[in-house]
Every structure is written in C-alpha cells, then in structure tokens.
Design a protein around this nucleic acid. Sequence first.
RNA 1: GGAGAGGUGGGUGAGUGGCUGAAACCAACAGUUUGCUAAACUGUCGUACGGGUUAAACUGUACCGGGGGUUCGAAUCCCCCCCUCUCCGCCA
Length: 424
Amino acid sequence: MLQVNFIREEREKVIVGLGKRGFKEAAVLVDKAISLDKERREIQQKNDEILGEINRLSKEIGGLMKSGKKDEAESIKGKTAELKKSSSELSTKLEQTELALRDTLYLIPNVPHESVPAGAGADDNISVHEHGALPKLPEDALPHWELIKKYDIIDFDLGNKISGAGFPVYKGKGARLQRALINFFLEKATAEGYLEIQPPIVVNEASGYGTGQLPDKEGQMYHMQLDNLYMIPTAEVPITNLYRDVILGESDLPVKNVGYTPCFRREAGSWGAHVRGLNRLHQFDKVEIVQVRNQDESYQALDEMCAYVQGLLKLLELPYRKLLLCGGDLGFNSAMTYDMEVFAGAQKRWLEVSSISNFETFQANRLKLRIKNKEGKIQLLHTLNGSALALPRIVAAILENNQTSEGIHIPEVLWDYTGFKIIN
RNA sequence: GGAGAGGUGGGUGAGUGGCUGAAACCAACAGUUUGCUAAACUGUCGUACGGGUUAAACUGUACCGGGGGUUCGAAUCCCCCCCUCUCCGCCA
C-alpha cells in the first residue's frame, strides 16, 4: 500500500509511474485518494476540536463537583451532551472516510522504479543477462514428464489419488533429489549470511494482509475456513510477517533471512497446455530469501540477491537468463523485479525459477515495519525477497538437460547431497 | 475437549472512576567523571493521526488485547469477542 502523503506530494510522479504498468485507473484512483485524504483531515480537525472542548468541560465539572458547586456542574453537563452528539456524528464520518481511503489505497499498485521499462506484458520484459550454452539434445529427447515415468521418480497418478491434480508424489531418487536441493540451497544461503528460519506454513488473516496477498489475491491461497487460516503460497508471507508491527533499531539491520517451506497455490484458472508435469503445481518446495533494508541500500541489496541466485544457477550448470520485468508484468506489490529463467532443453522453453523483488515501502507500510534511526526518527524500511530457488522447474531442467542414454546426470555440486551421480 | 488464570509502554510491573499517557525498576540512548573495561551520577526515553514550522520548538486528539455500553469524565464499572498461560484429557 502506498503512503497517502507520498501520493499527495508526488501526484504526477505516481500517475506517470503507474502508467508504465498500463494501469488505466491511475489518475482516477490517485485523485480519489487525495480528496478522501483531504476530507479525512478536515473531519479530524473539527472532531478533535470538539473532543478537546468536551475534555476541558469534563475537567471543569470534576473541579466543581469537588468544591460542592453542584448546580454549576449540572449546567455544564447540558453543554457536553450537545457536543457529544456532533462529535459522534463526525466520528462516524471519519471512520467511513478512513475506510474508503484505505480501500482506495488497496487498489493502487506499487509505483515502478524509474529504471523499469513500460510494457504490456511478458513480451516487453528485457533480458539483461544470459549465461550458459543451450543444451543440444537429440530429437527424441524426452520432456521431464516422460522422464519421471521412465525412471519412476515422481508419480502424478498417486498424488492424484490421495490429493488431486498438481500434488506430485516424489519417490526414491526423486525424493532424495528434492531433499538434496533443499539442503544445498539452505546451506548456500546460510554461508552467504542469511539466518535460517523455519516458519509455520499456515498463517492468519492479518499476515495475509501484511504482505499483500489479501485482499487482492484471496483466491490464490487455500483457506481453512474452520480456523480462518491460510496455507502459505510462499515463505515470503510468514517470514516477512515476522516483522509486522515492528520498529527496528539500526543495529538490527540488515535483516537477511532464508527459509524452506512447501508452498501452496490454488492456481485457479491458470491451467493449460503448457503447464504439464512440474511446470505448475498446487504444492511445491521453495527456498526463499528475504531482506529488510534501509531505504538507501535496498537496490544494492536487490543486486546482491540477484548475483547470489545467479551463482546458484551457475553451480547447477543450468543455462539461464535474467529478465528485468516491464511495468505490465510487474507484481502488484513490487517496485522492481528480476526474474531468473532456466532453459529446459526438451520442452525448448524458458522456465521461471526465481523472482527477485524490491517492494520498497509498499509492504512495510502495510506491515508497519519501521526503523528508529540514530536521530530518533521513525521511518519505513524496504522489504525484498526472492526465490533461491523454487524446486520443481529446477528439477525439470536438470532432468531434461542432463538426460543421456545411460541415465540422467546429477550436477556435481549436488553429489554430496544426493549420494548418487546418476538417475538410471 | 473440560476447568481455571490472565492480557497495561522495549521488558518486569503498579494502578478499581477525574490530579494517570500511565508510578517504580530494568533495558536503551546522550552526557559527566575515573587512564581502558566495569561502576557511579545527570538527563532523555511509547505510537498513530492532525495543527504548526524551511526544519524544529510547540500544540490537539486517540490508543492500557479488539468491539460495544454506562458516565459530564473509563486502564479502572458492565456486555460480547479474540488471544495467551496453567492443570486435566487426547496425541506427534
């Protein structure tokens, strides 16, 4: 959620920025927010004045009662009744205005960073870096959904039986590979200075609002109505919410956390021909890195996070490209996002395996995540996160790219974790 | 699931109707002093939204788990809800 003050003071900048997203209602919503904010302040000013008068009179009554001047006290009581009535009217109005303002702000996405290009969608993303040669596979190379059957390492039918589509069952070396990747990712991140966190994988409503899944992406999360809890779609939600309603000190920064969790996504309406196999799942494993930074260093942090993720992909020997997302493809909360995509040789497609974003103050404003600096000033912080990494598509690419006639070769960096070098 | 206790500022914890936005202590921060460390002393020390200011100073209102009520006046009294803890039961 954007700060009203920012919208008020930087109206043009906000509208132009939102324009890069192709966000058509930008001017309308921004002006609505500005006028609601103005209204809100006017009402509050009036109401505060009346409440102040009531407080003064109440004190006077107290004094009169004590000194036994009951009659005078009674006459003042009459005055307060009237004031109370107008105050309660104003309070109701104030509450309504605040709600309307909040609801308006909820509809306005984050303003993209200056360097984010305008664009309508995925086609306008800019590839800023590519690494590694694309694999040269024989014509009869199998896509991963065939490979997993051939070697019996992941079973969709079994998952279908006990849960439903999109809930795969990993078996034998398939299961071991999952565990190996999780351990590999966690240990790398820890070595990089991230604190390992093992958070709950269900969260309450407040946490959903904190990171912005609610109210706009309600349908994306599994909701347990009986307890009003949500299955997390990413570790970002619980880990970032650790800092909800928190005021940090300088010495607490930078916050660098890493966590592995299963992730649950309903993916309502997003199933199609190209989401076969591991390409899109309802449940998948992901290691997520989260940072909380001072405002002036968040973009440096974003670069560091990208470099870190790119390092992982290199170690896994996967050809990848780094995309700077254009305005139109940018997530609602994000000011700037880089996607990392690996090439899956048999599908001959780029698969997104990581999305690394700087939310600037957009999440922190909802979370009320702030810092008290040395001067005692309180300021919002910047939050960032990125996948490091999401497993299924990494697995898909490893399986496809490394297939040979004798089996699938495991990248050397994983051998210590898997305990085997080949799936055959 | 059954029974009980409790939710006050960063922490402990006082506070049963006005002088309490909240004692005291601890922590934290700033300063003074002793050669350093430690200690002592002095001061500062909640948040939000307004007004005000170049910025401060200053100032108004609200907030003692959340919501509602009683009252001229509520942390304090009443009602509802939420949460936490303890014991028992069940159980990984």
